[in-house]
């Protein structure tokens, strides 16, 4: 339909700090959306609480900025109710992997067709720089009083272990790469996860653009094939193991798609096996009443609740 990236942007002034990696994520996202040419009305951007979560109002598509950590269940309720919608979650590392970690795992288990984009700045930006769950042990970023006493969670490994069927890493300042990865993630049928390394110049003075430049490298898909091509378990297992191994590499951080398995049925597909009419008729698209009356007529009531109905047999 020929929408340009700027058509996916609102006119609001953006209140991130100068040099914040979130700017890069925003522009790669709108680029990806315009290239995918998705009807803005049929998109929903669900975002959590944090600097990252503010992205919802800079994108000119329906936005649901919700509670700290709860974007995934919000997105799940939206997507399953109306599977026609393309649902994208944006959240910080505190949001998705700290307070919302349980939901993060649950989404992988379900494989709902939702894309999750992690703004991984390794700090709690909006609350002024505390350690986030992805900050490595022993590191002391600017606002910490002492070096980090916690070990970090490995987002890629956690996503793989949870069952996400598309898992990738990209970098906020690599606009083209990030755009491509987001496109692939959105196009993937199933739960997709993108860990976006994101500089936070205000609070993370350790993981700077220079640091990321030094430590990251691109996966070359001529010799790295993350896609499970056959629906047989062997190939999936082999590629999953390789992806895990790569996820554990921490001296250098690979950018690219770690794993993609299109053969696992989505939650929606599994629902469709139980409901004959889903997703054609979804909760959002099926009528609930007839001219402000209930759909239940006395006859349908008797059919639907037959097990609870008792006729008196007096006289028999």
């Amino acid at each position: 339909m020929g929408l340009k990236p700027q058509d996916y942007r609102t006119q609001l002034w953006i209140d991130w700090c100068p040099g914040c990696g979130n700017f890069g994520i925003l522009s790669s996202l709108t680029l990806a959306l315009s290239e995918l040419s998705i009807d803005p009305k049929k998109l929903v951007l669900v975002s959590g609480i944090g600097c990252s979560g503010k992205i919802f109002q800079y994108v000119n598509v329906p936005g649901v900025h919700n509670l700290h950590g709860r974007s995934i269940p919000f997105a799940t309720g939206i997507k399953l109710s109306n599977p026609e919608l393309t649902v994208i979650v944006h959240g910080g590392d505190g949001d998705l992997l700290g307070i919302g970690a349980g939901h993060f795992v649950a989404l992988g288990r379900r494989n709902v067709d939702v894309t999750v984009i992690l703004h991984d700045n390794r700090v709690y930006g909006l609350t002024k720089g505390q350690a986030s769950p992805t900050l490595p042990y022993g590191v002391k970023t600017k606002a910490l009083t002492h070096p980090n006493i916690h070990y970090a969670v490995n987002p890629i490994a956690l996503a793989l272990a949870s069952g996400y069927t598309f898992v990738a890493r990209s970098y906020a300042l690599e606009a083209k790469h990030l755009k491509e990865v987001i496109k692939r993630a959105v196009q993937h049928k199933g739960s997709a996860f993108v860990d976006v390394l994101q500089p936070c110049p205000t609070f993370n003075d350790v993981h700077t653009p220079e640091y990321y430049k030094r430590i990251t490298y691109y996966l070359d898909e001529r010799d790295w094939d993350p896609l499970v091509r056959n629906p047989d378990e062997r190939e999936a297992e082999e590629k999953l193991l390789k992806a895990f191994k790569l996820a554990l590499e921490e001296e250098r951080l690979a950018l690219g798609v770690f794993y993609q398995n299109p053969h696992v049925p989505t939650f929606e597909e599994r629902l469709a096996e139980r409901f004959k009419t889903y997703p054609r008729a979804s909760p959002a698209t099926s009528p609930i009443g007839r001219e402000s009356r209930t759909l239940l007529t006395p006859e349908t009531f008797q059919k639907v609740f037959r097990d609870y109905i008792v006729e008196t047999l007096q006289g028999y």
């Binding site: 919700n66 309720g77 609930i288 349908t300 639907v304």
Partner: peptide
Amino acid sequence: LLGPLLVLQVEDEIAAVASAIGAALA
């Protein structure tokens, strides 16, 4: 007779209320 009625067992009550809100928004 009635169309799909989705009943979803979720991971906790926070997800229960959050997904119900999501559904209502849809």
